[in-house]
């Protein structure tokens, strides 16, 4: 694969006069309510948050605070009730139609009648790519996530971790500039999650993609990201921003350094404050 592309350094929050590329995601004073006036549920209020090009941003917050809602706003599944959302320099719908971002959920959402290879090919198939190109790209992504040898397996024959790998391979096949991930490892056991965290970082390092990563695990957020955003209870809004300056590449060694523990403790305090 020809991927070790240039990855721009993580832009520091707020100002980065030197950055040319548009941010991957920019929420500006964004609000979202489910339903209409009477029984409306206000999920998000006044959220301003940016994910720079190539940046890895994690979002944590109490459950039900609107994290998934935030991701669906960026994915053009929902439209904001107030404020604006821009994805890769334009409206989310445009980025979606240009197939410049992809999504991975907690549930891998594989089609059970398709083999791993066919599932990974799905986005290419929908985009109308030629069968030869589809096969080749899908195979590369399958190799990248470590599923080589399982191309012909059906999802029902795989473990939870392998299914999630397939889901990530599928999200990567169109070589998106942005990955939107909603607790992708939330249903996995801790060891599998650690391994997949490591692999996700490897993949991210080899592609130029920016990542908006929702999680409820503080350790995971700190370990993976350039920045951790902490949301308050519903209606969710940004309570704190933690610029995680741990060195990269992040190895398991980095995870055990004093600095890593320090960031984890600070993130926990911020989350506790935001949950009150």
């Amino acid at each position: 694969m020809v991927t070790p592309l240039f990855r721009p350094p993580a832009a520091p929050l707020g100002s980065s006069p030197g950055t040319v590329a548009a941010p991957a995601v920019a929420f500006h004073r964004c609000g979202y309510s489910y339903g209409r006036s009477a029984g409306a549920v206000e999920a998000l209020r006044d959220v301003t948050l940016t994910v720079g090009a190539g940046e890895f941003v994690a979002v944590i917050g109490p459950s039900g605070c609107g994290k998934s809602t935030l991701l669906r706003l960026a994915a053009d599944v929902l439209a904001p009730s107030s404020g604006t959302v821009e994805v890769l320099g334009g409206p989310p719908a445009q980025a979606r139609r240009q197939r410049r971002f992809s999504v991975a959920f907690q549930d891998p959402v594989l089609l059970p009648w398709r083999t791993v290879l066919q599932n990974v090919e799905l986005p290419l198939e929908i985009a109308g790519r030629s069968p030869g190109h589809r096969r080749e790209m899908a195979q590369q992504m399958i190799n990248l996530v470590g599923l080589t040898g399982f191309e012909r397996a059906l999802p029902g024959q795989l473990s939870g971790g392998m299914r999630q790998r397939a889901s990530i391979a599928r999200a990567l096949t169109l070589q998106p500039a942005l990955l939107l991930m909603d607790e992708p490892f939330g249903a996995l056991d801790e060891l599998t999650r650690d391994r997949l965290n490591q692999e996700l970082l490897d993949v991210w390092q080899r592609t130029a993609a920016a990542v908006l990563f929702i999680t409820h695990s503080i350790e995971e957020a700190v370990y993976l990201s350039d920045r951790v955003m902490v949301l308050t209870r519903r209606p969710g809004t940004v309570a704190a921003t933690l610029p995680i300056d741990l060195p990269r590449p992040r190895t398991l060694y980095v995870k055990r350094t004093a600095a890593a523990f320090e960031w984890t403790a600070r993130a926990r305090l911020a989350l506790e404050a935001a949950s009150r």
């Binding site: 669906r72 994915a75 053009d76 599944v77 979606r96 139609r97 197939r99 971002f101 992809s102 999504v103 959920f105 549930d107 959402v109 089609l111 799905l122 986005p123 198939e125 929908i126 985009a127």
Partner: peptide, 21 residues
């Protein structure tokens, strides 16, 4: 719902959703 959301984010047409999912 999630499968539909996924197909939507892939910009699948109604026909593709009908036939493929």
């Amino acid at each position: 719902g999630q499968a539909l959301e996924l197909m939507h984010t892939m910009s699948a047409s109604r026909w593709q959703i009908l036939v493929k999912v």
